[in-house]
Design a protein around this nucleic acid. Structure first.
Lengths: 208, 208
DNA sequence: CAGTTGTGGCAACAGTCGTTCACTGACTCT
DNA sequence: AGAGTCAGTGAACGACTGTTGCCACAACTG
């Protein structure tokens, strides 16, 4: 007890995080299915064998990256979806929040967009699970809105998935425009906002 | 002249097509960036060196696959978008056509969905170019529709991209449901149809 | 029928890869 | 303070990779 415990765990978590960060960096120019175990350890500066102390395989590392990229996103989703105000104002804030998240975590966004349909099945499934959770949270929030009065649960979930997919598409567009001019980024913002607005209009007239 | 010419070219095209087919098969369980040159030639049954007679690299092969998967799709796009009749009937036919295409060419669909955001930049760009062409064709068809009277060109292109993205998402959903039950496939059909319908409703009330 | 063209095969190059085993040495518990 | 735990090391394994130069031989040209 006099010995300060946790030094071990702290060091382990540190190199584990270093492996995750290095992998995320390497994945900017390739897919997970071509990411080599040695490649990652070389980038960190540890022996290849050290990798096994943290992950069973690169697919396992991919699953951890999914958790890191999407697991911490639930509060943000709730913020977007439970904001109050005019419909157009809400979509504008949503697009703005997405743009901010892409600017703050570009590698995470790239990873999810790339591996959502990527070549590693367990990772695809992990992403799908997280996105389904997002959709269900969006559905729950939509259900509380007065605009959704009279909607079936099926239709609510349909709209929720439509919104989630649209968030991902928007994020991907912002990612492509990250290194472009400010003008180009404004164009993306306007296009994404109009997309969202059209869906919102369709929502308002769904029960006609 | 007495010699029947073209035997050479025919053989070359044949092995080239065999390489493309083998690659497409191998890409069902991995991404293009991890596809090996030798892996493809081994699957076909030719020497690794023969690969260079047809492609400079696996990225070049990927570009050829984009052409094969999307280049021949333009007539289908035009069929979908220029069909006449009631709005709901048109979306129903569109979803049906997409389902048929996925059933007929599942590997092509998987390839495009996977490599659209994949790790090989030239292939990403080739896919983007083709999809932009699709969007412009859809935009042109939308412009001829009386519902689009008063729309700006910018908004038309926005809607066209929304439709194209929705086609891809729908195709990907059908792909996942390919080996599922008939019941599950019907669920996907209904969900995709309702998505399209909601966008159509948004379109009708866009200028309100 | 000669001469040219070009698809494909063979062998070899220097690397890279994932995985194993026994090992060190700093931290942790009793 | 002594025994035990365990993150990280180093060497070695067999297999695989992209790419090269050279050669064979069938198909085309005149």
């Amino acid at each position: 007890m006099s010995h300060t415990p946790g030094v071990r765990q702290a060091r382990k978590r540190k190199t584990r995080q270093a492996l995750l960060d290095a992998a995320l960096g390497l994945l900017e120019e390739q897919s997970l299915s071509s990411l080599g175990l040695r490649e990652v350890t070389r980038a960190v500066g540890v022996a290849p064998t050290a990798f096994y102390r943290h992950f069973r395989s690169t697919a396992d590392l991919g699953a951890a990256l999914v958790e890191e990229a999407l697991g911490s996103l639930h509060p943000t989703i709730r913020t977007i979806v439970s904001s109050v105000g005019d419909s157009d104002l809400r979509t504008a804030r949503a697009v703005e929040l997405i743009a901010g998240h892409v600017a703050a975590h570009p590698a995470h966004v790239r990873f999810v967009a790339r591996e959502r349909h990527g070549g590693v099945q367990p990772v695809r499934e992990a992403i799908r699970e997280q996105l389904d959770l997002f959709a269900d949270e969006v559905r729950a929030a939509l259900a509380k809105d007065q605009v959704s009065a009279g909607w079936s649960d099926d239709d609510l979930l349909m709209l929720a998935h439509l919104y989630v997919d649209q968030m991902l598409i928007t994020a991907s567009l912002f990612l492509d425009a990250l290194e472009a001019s400010e003008e180009e980024r404004q164009r993306v913002t306007r296009a994404a906002t109009r997309r969202m607005r059209l869906i919102g209009i369709g929502r308002e007239h769904w029960l006609d």
